[in-house]
Nucleic acid binder design. Structure first.
Lengths: 239, 239
DNA sequence: CGGAATTTTGAAACCTTTCAAATTGGGTGG
DNA sequence: CCACCCAATTTGAAAGGTTTCAAAATTCCG
């Protein structure tokens, strides 16, 4: 009896995510794995892109969390979206692109320079799908900010984290590492850290979440999603 | 003495906008003008795309206003962005795309099917730039919703309208046609129509705007932009 | 001209922010 | 291994901005 080739659950999260977006050829997988193997460290707080400055190179997050942000004249900060392993940074198609948002490392990161689009058509498809998904999450953030209460915003963002991290194999059973401060959550949700804190405490009291030591567990992700009327993000009819 | 070819200020606004994004070949201009000439009417309130449904064809707004929207389970509506003459609808690169937002006609529209990307490389560039600009305006909306007061949101959105309409030649001297109800503004700004109304009245009292009969005039656009710390949207170092 | 949609007004309730200060927690050096 | 320090979390009270719910006034359109 011969063993079937087992699905590689031990593949790097970044590779897992990209491979989940579009079927990759063996060559494309190898090229991406190679790039990931040569990833470099970036310390927390460092900017990978700065709003208004030219974008010279595409990057991919290999490990850690980053955020797209805008800084207002008065120093306030607004996060546009979060970036996880497998997410692209500076993927643009127009000539001489300028960054429309700053990208900042929220934790210590490792980032790599993924294979160029031209080299592997199957990777090109995955990059395109990745960009489309990212736009969908921008829209989700607009809806959160425009139409949800503070409590709903927090739950909805946690569910988004869960959905996205699961794609890279980084969330199991409603639980995942959450290396954010309550102030960072506030920067994403348009709330003060004080109010985020109060709503988190309410969520704990209600038995909806556990969050200690950088580890978050959603007690009833399904039921929470139902309460919020939240649907999984889909951008393509395929698969 | 021979007359120089004068810039065609009488070109259709949609063509003006696209031509302003990237230099177009004569053939591309002709093809686009031809498409615009065969535009069709779409009545107000009609949906041009529906969230979750397949996208079959690309469109371009020739005249009128539309919006990208999401409808929540409880019937609330959130506008993601507005679409003006020269803006693209359903321009996607991934296979079998599904609409991530509904697109609804806010006024009676005319829309056309613009030339496919493959036919004119210069148009492809313009489409790409158009998509990048649209993303920048999504980010602007996130910042508005997350970090601005009601009054600031209204001013900032009006300045965005001015900037975008000017590109198509539809705004002069700080004034333009604004065919929105205060409820629609609320749907974009995450506010109730009642509060939009109160803030609009305050803006009138302060002498910052005039708005009657669908016609809006910003009294001091420059000074208003300065007060808000608003910079023009730039996505490319070229031009 | 009539009816529907939109704008306007008021008062009270509600959610979120603000400002400060106290407490907790994690990491570092002695 | 403990003490210390800084960052992050937590708490309270008061102020503030926005929503809610009606109802009235106005405007637009057929």
């Amino acid at each position: 009896m011969t063993a079937l080739p087992a699905p590689r659950d031990d593949a790097p999260p970044a590779l897992r995510r990209i491979a989940a977006l579009a079927p990759l050829t063996q060559a494309a997988k190898a090229a991406l794995a190679d790039a990931i193997g040569r990833a470099l460290r970036v310390p927390a707080r460092r900017e990978l892109l700065t709003e208004g400055k030219p974008i010279t190179e595409m990057r991919m997050i290999v490990s850690g969390w980053a955020a797209r942000a805008r800084i207002l004249p008065d120093g306030q900060r607004q996060f546009m979206s979060f970036l996880f392993p497998g997410d692209l940074i500076g993927y643009c198609r127009q000539p001489a692109p300028l960054a429309v948002s700053t990208v900042v490392a929220l934790t210590d990161l490792t980032v790599c320079t993924p294979p160029a689009e031209g080299d592997h058509p199957s990777l090109c498809t995955a990059y395109t799908i990745s960009a489309a998904i990212e736009e969908a999450y921008l829209l989700a953030n607009i809806t959160r900010l425009g139409r949800m209460s503070a409590q709903e915003r927090i739950y909805d963002l946690f569910l988004e984290f869960h959905e996205r991290l699961a794609l890279a194999g980084l969330a199991v059973g409603g639980a995942f590492e959450l290396p954010l401060t309550q102030e960072m959550l506030g920067d994403a949700l348009g709330l003060t850290s004080v109010h985020v804190n109060r709503m988190i405490q309410a969520a704990r009291r209600d038995g909806d979440i556990e969050w200690r030591g950088g580890h978050l567990k959603l007690r009833h992700p399904r039921e929470l999603a139902r309460r919020l009327g939240r649907h999984p993000t889909r951008i393509s009819a395929e698969q």
